[in-house]
Amino acid sequence: MIRSIIKLMKSNYLFTLGCFICLCWILAAIFADFIAPYGPITQDLSIRLNSPSLEHLFGTDNFGRDIFSRVIYGGRYSLLAGCVTVLLAGTIGSIYGAIAGYLGGVVDDIMMRLSEMILSFPSLILAMCINAALGSSLFNTMFALVIVAWPTYARLMRSVVLTVKENEYVEAARALGASKWRVLITEIIPNSVGSVLIMATTDLGNQILMFSTLSFLGLGSAPPTPEWGMMVSDGVNYFNKFWVAGFPGLAILTMAVGSNFIGDGLRDLMDPKLRKEF
């Protein structure tokens, strides 16, 4: 497994780049105390809204806080929230969708109607409601995001499974006497996860933004917590000072793109047909 990942890194430069970007952000978040030149909430109103300079690489915001430091620290919250949400929602959603699609019939109907109940609410409002009901904390916000996000994965997985299960190799496994669950786990899921993986990696940026939207509304993390999405929304008020919103936005963008590259690479790694090409 490790050997094939190294092989993949050598041949697929985008994958390597994606790994590099994500690793940088993760390391930066872990070692923020050593990397960041200033504290994330240290204010100095005399230097508010200064443009980027050698002293303040990314400039300062309206409270005179160093944006570079805040971006470094912000990774802790944004990455945690984004990754955990995507991971949980993706896993739950794809297992749920796979079971619904595979069993079909009444089970499928009931399971999908249940998930559509969640989809039928505007996701942001629903997340807010859950969050408000449970009380605002980092954990509860992530929980709310997972509840809102998993049905999309379930729907995608179900539709893929519906086509994959018609393949003759599935029938061959049944003819050999494999049990239902064995067929699902060994034949169907490995051939279906590719598209879910791609969606998960693009969804990461999305979830970071969702999280910051909730934070902006006073749920999730509260100011002055440095959090990428919240920093972007703060920056919107200072339209002519591009660095205030620009740099945290860039952080979200690079993270989303990086994880997308990784997802692309992983899909290729799992599909032997694509593996040959790189």
Partner: peptide
């Protein structure tokens, strides 16, 4: 019938 569909590609 279809030899390419009857073997798990993974």
């Amino acid at each position: 019938q279809d030899p390419s569909a009857c073997l798990n590609p993974r």
